[in-house]
């Protein structure tokens, strides 16, 4: 199918991008276009203007900024998952990014695009939540920082204001002692996650000191499994009964959707099983 007509602005600078976005309330940002183009082709979206930010060098790339990495919004998934900085300091981001779509889509699709699209079935929003990323937004008025926990407001809806652009994210380096795992449970390789689990675990001498868990596709927004996290400290990794007990609350505070692939009770069950497994893998 074929997109409806739209105007196109290729931003040559950030200020041009801000201006174009501010000038048209029906403008949409085009980065890699891997979520947007299928929507346009199916005529599920009719933006008046596309503002192409794909050629702004300042939005692209991974920088080491001390206690965190800054990942620019238009850094492609492929660049993210191959980045030595990401692999070294934020391996959870690399792991989850490797499960996004397929190689060709990862060549075009962007880190920031996946976050700003805010699809709860997308893999990166849960990772942003688990790692407590700070998302950096910019507009003609200046820049501001939005904690991941406050970024995802509803299905495909973020805290970005009209005219505001996601510039990138500050991703904390969690440091030594942490292990990570992203589990994507889906029916075929290309399909969206039925449930995904982003897990980060700090452990010492076989005992969990601290754990973080965020869930993909368990509600209209990615969900932090706080109840399960609370039960993790002190659990011995080889004590399956204790780990299972701790993760039995992984689906608390979720509101899983019902769709072709899973009904809510099954998603809740999966969230519990997969959280337990993700924590064990993260600690392995």
């Amino acid at each position: 199918m074929i997109p409806a007509s739209f105007d196109y602005v290729r931003a040559e600078s950030l200020s041009e991008a801000f201006q174009a976005l501010g000038a048209d309330e029906d403008a949409k940002v085009l980065a890699g276009g891997q979520s947007l183009l299928p929507l346009l082709r199916l005529r599920l979206a009719y933006p008046a203007t596309l503002v192409d930010i794909g050629r702004l060098p300042e939005l692209r790339g991974v920088r080491d900024e001390g206690d965190h990495l800054f990942i620019g919004a238009t850094t492609t998934h492929d660049e993210v998952l191959k980045s030595p900085l990401v692999q070294t300091y934020c391996p959870l981001v690399a792991q989850a990014t490797a499960t996004v779509a397929d190689p060709a889509v990862r060549h075009r699709g962007t880190f920031g695009g996946s976050l700003a699209h805010a699809d709860p079935a997308g893999d990166l929003p849960a990772v942003a939540l688990a790692l407590d990323m700070d998302l950096v937004a910019g507009s003609a008025e200046g820049t501001r920082t939005i904690p991941a926990a406050e970024f995802f407001l509803d299905y495909l809806e973020t805290a970005l204001a009209p005219g505001e652009l996601l510039l990138g994210a500050r991703v904390p380096k969690l440091g030594p002692g942490w292990g990570f795992h992203y589990t994507k449970f889906h029916r075929v390789a290309q399909a969206w996650a039925i449930v995904g689990v982003a897990a980060a675990v700090r452990h010492q001498d076989g005992v969990i000191a601290e754990g973080r868990v965020a869930l993909t596709n368990m509600g209209a927004v990615p969900v932090r499994a706080r109840a399960a996290e609370a039960g993790l400290p002190g659990v011995a990794l080889d004590d399956r009964t204790a780990l299972r007990a701790a993760t039995a609350s992984a689906d608390d505070a979720t509101d899983p959707p019902s769709d072709l692939h899973a009904r809510p009770d099954y998603r809740r069950h999966l969230a519990r099983v997969l959280t337990e497994r993700a924590i064990r893998s993260a600690a392995a």
Partner: peptide, 22 residues
């Protein structure tokens, strides 16, 4: 029309892309 099948894959600046979604 959903970037799934890959029949339209080409190299753009040396990297594979789905030309129906560019």
């Amino acid at each position: 029309d959903t970037t799934n099948c890959g029949a339209c894959t080409v190299l753009l600046d040396g990297l594979s892309v789905k030309s129906c979604s560019v």
